[in-house]
Each structure stands twice: as C-alpha cells, then as structure tokens.
C-alpha cells in the first residue's frame, strides 16, 4: 500500500520561505495571495496490508525521522 505524509510547520513558527513565496506570487500578479505556508510531501511504498498497523508504523516513522515535532506537524494518508 502507498502512504502520503505531509509535514508542515506548526502555527506560530515563523516560515520565511512561505513568506518569500507569497511575496514572489504577489509580484507576479497574484495580489489575492495572502499568508503562504510551505511544507514537505513524502510518498512511501509500504509492504503492509493492514491499515491500522500501517498507520501505527507511519506515526512512529514521523516521530522518529520524518518530522521534527518541535516545530512541525504531520498528517498521514493511506492510498490503495
């Protein structure tokens, strides 16, 4: 099964990259763009058929490596 993990900065953590992206979009003629937050998208192929077990393992992966929970949140999505 395939899993998708999104890692984003927690609210309140300054995101200078997001800000720079927002400014660039404004300059490019998209004045409607306000606050921008950027993050990471990680797609994983798992040798696992049990969804509950997969979620549990992914949660551990996120806490151990994929996200730094001091500043980042993560969300897990299972596909297929």
């Amino acid at each position: 099964m395939k899993a998708r993990v999104h890692v984003t900065l927690k609210n309140g953590v300054l995101d200078p990259q997001g800000k720079a992206i927002g400014h660039s979009l404004n300059r490019l003629g998209f004045p409607e763009v306000g606050d921008v937050r950027q993050g990471k998208f990680i797609e994983l192929e798992l040798a696992e058929t049990d969804k509950g077990r997969a979620k549990e393992r992914l949660d551990e992966m996120c806490r151990k490596l994929l996200a730094n929970t001091v500043i980042e949140n993560y969300s897990i999505e299972l596909v297929g």
């Binding site: 953590v13 300054l14 990259q17 720079a20 730094n68």
Partner: peptide, 17 residues
C-alpha cells in the same frame, strides 16, 4: 545534537533565507 535529542530546540532556516 538537537535532532538526536542531546540538546533542546531546533535550528531553522536563517530568517533572511
């Protein structure tokens, strides 16, 4: 060291990028 939990906190991208 921060990632390994030897020290608290985190080093983020420089504010001015």
């Amino acid at each position: 060291a921060t990632e390994a939990g030897l020290l608290p906190g985190v080093l983020m991208r420089n504010a001015q990028l």
